[in-house]
Amino acid sequence: MISVVVLISGSGSNLRALLEATSAVDYPAHVVAIGADREADGLGHASDFGIPSFDVPYTSFSSREEWGEELAEQLRAWNADLIVLSGLMRLLPESVVDEFGPRIINTHPAYLPEFPGAHGVRDALASGASETGASVIVVDNGVDTGPILAQERVPVLPDDTEASLHERIKPVERRLLIDAVRRVATGELDLTTPA
């Protein structure tokens, strides 16, 4: 059984799916804490599931590095086997990635390396792509450039909007995340040498 800390910025829909999965007695991971970089609605899931939460508001610090130092302090306190970025809309400082990597994974609403960055769904639509997807990666010091753990294609429909396409990607992202955490926990995925 591995321990997991999840970091979010928003409503935490992927987080909720992961919490439901980890509630199953046969799931080989459990979430020990949930953190956020701002006041986030998703922290409500922590109280729903009886899990401790913390926030490290980015705007309370004078630099990304100072924010990273406090975030690292929080992460050290939980000593988790795995850190999951689940809708955390902020790049981690290099010092955090260097200390905790490769034990940090992230979901992304595109078929990487296509459409990295904060607007993957919008960028896929703007490019006229006929398909995009969802990916789970190991976090490195680039922008969505880490080793790919899992990914799956999602078609772009002719009448898609950013919202409708993102709604179709989310269930795929959740399924990939839940499976990737399970496979890390069982040793099927080695984060130091992902397939």
Rank of each mutant, 00 (worst) to 15 (best):
V5S: 09
V5I: 13
I8E: 01
S11C: 00
S11L: 11
N14Q: 04
A17S: 09
E20R: 06
E20F: 06
A21C: 05
T22M: 10
T22I: 06
S23E: 11
S23D: 07
S23I: 07
D26G: 08
P28V: 08
P28F: 02
P28T: 06
A29F: 05
H30L: 05
H30W: 08
V31P: 00
G35C: 10
G35P: 09
D37K: 02
R38P: 00
D41P: 01
G42P: 11
L43K: 07
G44A: 10
H45D: 07
S47D: 11
D48Q: 09
F49G: 05
P57D: 04
T59K: 13
R64H: 13
E69I: 14
L75K: 02
L75C: 11
R76P: 01
N79W: 03
A80V: 13
L82A: 10
M89I: 14
R90P: 03
L91P: 02
V96E: 00
G101Y: 15
P102T: 06
I104T: 01
P109Y: 07
Y111R: 04
Y111V: 04
L112E: 01
F115P: 00
G117E: 03
A118M: 14
A118P: 03
H119R: 08
R122K: 04
R122F: 12
D123F: 10
D123Y: 12
L125Q: 00
S127E: 12
G128Y: 10
A129C: 05
G133I: 01
G133L: 09
S135C: 03
I137E: 07
V138I: 05
D140Q: 07
D140M: 12
D144C: 12
G146E: 08
I148A: 14
R153P: 13
L157H: 12
L157Y: 15
P158C: 06
T161Q: 12
H166E: 14
K170H: 15
P171M: 14
R174S: 14
R175Y: 07
A180G: 11
V181W: 02
R182H: 12
V184I: 13
A185N: 02
E188V: 12
D190F: 10
L191C: 11
L191Q: 04
T193Y: 00
A195H: 11
A195Q: 09
